[in-house]
């Protein structure tokens, strides 16, 4: 390129050095200007894209609805309720002693996503889970007494056939992970706050 410019008599600005690089090694001043312009354009467009992309993330009003209180006193042993938190179902199940025992006695080696039952509950009886299948986000069955609870007595996702146990852990099917445990605290013996 330097040669071509030289042949066609590239314009030279007096007092500002040659527009062509006679050695051809370091590039010309014009090359520098091209690269600087291109770099500024890329950075500028990138910076302008930020507000557009960020506008698609959750807005303040969506983030504001982040916590939900649940009264546990009406839930009988062996039954469950579904509540809505951030537009998603949360399963609260009051487990029977047998269900707790079944979850505790399962060897971790049999689990695709190993986690002891103790790490998934705050009180043995109360299992609080995000009711969203970790495969593709369907709501698993198992909350109502009439529902199928799958082969492991927990939940069964009808969309693609994932089976969860009485600790909400994945046992069989395409889901890669256990049902998530949301952040929650016991605000009293019969009350929790999720989120």
């Amino acid at each position: 390129m330097a040669d071509t410019l030289a042949q066609h008599g590239a314009p030279q600005v007096p007092g500002h050095g040659p527009a062509v690089d006679p050695g051809g090694e370091g590039g010309t001043r014009r090359d520098f200007l091209y690269l600087t312009t291109a770099a500024f354009t890329v950075v500028g467009v990138g910076a302008l894209a930020v507000p557009f992309i960020a506008s698609m993330n959750p807005s303040r009003d969506v983030l504001a609805l982040a916590s939900t209180e649940v009264d546990l006193s009406p839930i009988a042993v062996g039954s469950a309720v579904t509540i809505v938190w951030r537009g998603k179902p949360v399963f609260v199940r009051r487990r029977t002693a047998e269900e707790v025992q079944a979850a505790r006695q399962t060897p971790l080696s049999e689990l695709p996503d190993p986690a002891p039952d103790q790490s998934r509950v705050k009180k043995d009886e109360w299992l609080v889970l995000l009711g969203v299948c970790t495969h593709l986000g369907c709501v698993p069955l198992g909350q109502k007494p009439s529902d199928s609870r799958g082969e492991f007595g927990g939940w069964f996702c009808p969309c693609h056939g994932s089976h969860y146990d009485t600790s909400g852990r994945i046992r069989k099917g395409p889901a890669p992970a256990n049902l998530a445990v949301p952040d929650y605290v016991f605000t009293s013996d019969t009350q929790i706050r999720i989120g």
């Binding site: 698609m56 959750p58 807005s59 951030r86 537009g87 998603k88």
Partner: peptide, 27 residues
């Protein structure tokens, strides 16, 4: 729900992408 959740399979950034697609924590 199912189709947008396909993006959650992407390692590391999958969940953030899904939240971004939804503009919230669910469809």
């Amino acid at each position: 729900t199912v189709i947008t959740n396909l993006f959650s399979a992407i390692p590391l950034v999958g969940e953030s992408i899904v939240t971004w697609l939804w503009g919230g924590f669910s469809v």
